[in-house]
């Protein structure tokens, strides 16, 4: 499959993984390897907090680039500080920008998100914002200089799939930067659907890490993203109202 290119950087997989929710690092490692991912998110937390520092070493050993996120931030100021700390700790200018409005929906706060995106772009970051499935906001984020836009399919961790495929198609149609379907994917067919809608990549975590068999689901997701990408490029047939025989007429 052709590389995913974000801000001039090439990634050999169109499946971006998250690391949250895995039972332990051994399970996570098998899932990441099976997924074929080249880019994987991590969160920033206090050094002595739970969760362990082993995930960075794991990604380094597997040759997977770390994508720090600003999960847990509710304001632009919090997100900007977290991004700066991540840049210092991980020596990367990549950031998955997350600014959520509340902890029940975890939906992005569009006002704070755009504000944070503008500040981080000005500060030299390569900003990948987790955003609503709103074509207008996605366009504003791209105009602000974000390197990609990452609309949700449905709220984080719900596994409800892509609730508004038409909005995702509109975001793709207008996009001047790569579109990454981020959040809400529950199973492989939904990852394939994202790619068929024209997304450049899929970002998921929970669907794999909380599956009964994370390694098998990671394999399924890898194949689904590849299938969806191929199908998108292959050009699907138009939908017809009436049947159209695929065998020759009887003589």
């Amino acid at each position: 499959m052709d590389d995913l290119v974000i801000a001039g950087r090439k990634f050999g997989s169109r499946l971006i993984m998250g690391t949250g929710g895995a039972a332990n690092l051994a399970v996570l490692e098998r899932a990441l390897v099976a997924s074929g991912t080249a880019l994987t998110t991590v969160a920033m937390r206090r050094l002595d907090a739970g969760g362990g520092p082993g995930v960075l070493a794991l990604l380094e050993r597997l040759g997977i680039e770390a994508l720090p996120n600003t999960a847990g931030c509710h304001t632009a100021a919090e997100a900007v500080l977290t991004a700066r700390l991540a840049r210092e700790a991980l020596e990367t200018d990549l950031v998955k920008l997350e600014v959520v409005a509340d902890d029940r929906t975890l939906l992005p706060d569009p006002i704070e998100l755009l504000d944070a995106a503008e500040q981080l772009v000005d500060d030299g970051f390569t900003v990948l914002p987790y955003t609503n499935d709103d074509p207008v906001l996605a366009q504003k984020l791209a105009d602000a200089g974000c390197a990609a836009v990452m609309p949700l399919g449905s709220p984080i961790g719900t596994g409800l799939g892509i609730r508004n495929p038409h909005n995702i198609e509109m975001i793709v149609a207008a996009a001047s930067v790569p579109v990454v379907l981020d959040a809400g994917i529950g199973t492989a067919s939904e990852a394939a659907q994202a790619m068929e809608l024209g997304c450049d990549a899929v970002l998921l975590a929970t669907a794999v890490t909380r599956a009964s068999d994370p390694e098998a689901m990671a394999t399924a997701m890898r194949l689904a993203v590849e299938s969806g990408r191929l199908a998108r490029g292959a050009g699907r047939i138009p939908r017809r109202y009436w049947a159209h025989a695929s065998s020759p007429a009887v003589d």
Partner: peptide, 10 residues
């Protein structure tokens, strides 16, 4: 003083 590191998440 706050000291942060990367953990599983996202």
């Amino acid at each position: 003083v706050e000291v942060l590191t990367a953990v599983q998440g996202g």
